[in-house]
């Protein structure tokens, strides 16, 4: 395998969980809800995915279980923030705390067991094309799912009535309500979609990335996903660019180290974060872009008057 190809493959694996979690959060935020519990939902997805795959021996059942784990936690969040109108920032942080603890409890008996790996699909003939074959046609199903989700969310958000409703709920919940849309129901759905995607991202970690269960195995990736959403200015396509950019900088930090230049590893490790800040500054500087796309009601509680 040639070195460039290896790097590209590594970048794709590193970026996919970020992309999956972030696309869900993007939809959630588009509906005006800020869920800071991505890390918690992700780690629940990881443990549920691992447990189910290990028990049944089938990684696809694991994926479903991962989605379920994420959705279950998201549902909790939805009840609190939507039905009971609690503060979203605080609830999201509490959700992360709960997810990390609960996943540790569930996973206690699964530590130190070899997992079931989600196999690459290796599309016949196409995946044997030199260089681009393995990159484009030799990935596992979740990588394709992440790419498909980018296009699907772009389409749904900007070309369909459903997308219009989601965006109008996120931009001005009062007028959306006045128009007769059920703001709370829309937000419930978007929060659960976010949970499903985070669960998928978690399952990717424990089934494809590193097929095993270890406590806290998300290691802060949920937070990075949250950052990517802001970075993307709530546009799915830019989100994909951001995720792959972050993955690339992340991997290049390791790559440069292995070449042995003697740059302190702490500086290389901090590079992805520095780059994210710089990229954010550049994008945010463009006021027309951000102002148009930022969901105006993000983080605000809505309680219908009657």
């Amino acid at each position: 395998m040639d070195a460039t190809q290896a790097v590209i493959l590594t970048i794709i694996t590193a970026s996919t969980p970020l992309l999956l979690a972030a696309i869900g959060e993007l939809v959630t935020e588009r509906s005006g809800v800020l869920n800071l519990g991505v890390e918690g939902m992700m780690v629940m997805g990881a443990v549920c995915g691992f447990a189910a795959a290990y028990t049944t021996g089938n990684p696809y059942i694991g994926i479903l279980a991962g989605v379920f784990g994420g959705v279950a936690l998201a549902f909790f969040f939805a009840i609190l923030t939507q039905t009971l109108a609690t503060n979203q920032v605080a609830t999201g942080l509490a959700l992360t705390l709960l997810g990390l603890g609960l996943s540790g409890l569930i996973g206690e008996s699964f530590v130190g067991l070899p997992g079931v790996k989600l196999q690459q699909l290796s599309i016949p003939f196409l995946s044997t094309i030199p260089f681009i074959g393995p990159i484009l046609f030799g990935q596992d199903i979740l990588v394709y799912a992440s790419v498909a989700l980018i296009f699907a969310t772009t389409y749904v958000l900007f070309k369909t009535r459903v997308g219009l409703i989601i965006r109008s709920v996120g931009d001005n919940h009062n007028s959306a309500h006045a128009l007769g849309y059920n703001v709370i129901a829309v937000r419930y759905a978007c929060i659960m979609f976010g949970g499903a995607c985070s669960g998928l991202a978690g399952a990717y970690l424990s089934l494809a990335y590193t097929p095993q269960w270890i406590e806290n195995m998300t290691a802060g990736r949920g937070w990075v996903a949250l950052a990517l959403v802001v970075f993307s200015t709530w546009l799915p396509k830019r989100l994909a660019i951001g995720a792959y950019l972050f993955g690339a900088v992340w991997i290049m930090g390791l790559y440069v180290q292995a070449l042995g230049f003697g740059i302190p590893s702490q500086f290389l490790s901090s590079l992805p974060y520095v780059v994210t800040i710089i990229a954010l500054v550049i994008i945010s500087g463009n006021k027309t872009l951000t102002r148009v796309n930022t969901p105006a009601c993000i983080g605000q509680t809505f309680v219908p008057d009657r």
């Binding site: 705390l97 709960l98 997810g99 603890g101 609960l102 540790g104 409890l105 206690e108």
Partner: peptide, 10 residues
């Protein structure tokens, strides 16, 4: 376990 404490806090 430490996890129970975390769940409890959540």
């Amino acid at each position: 376990s430490d996890k129970t404490a975390q769940v409890f806090q959540g």
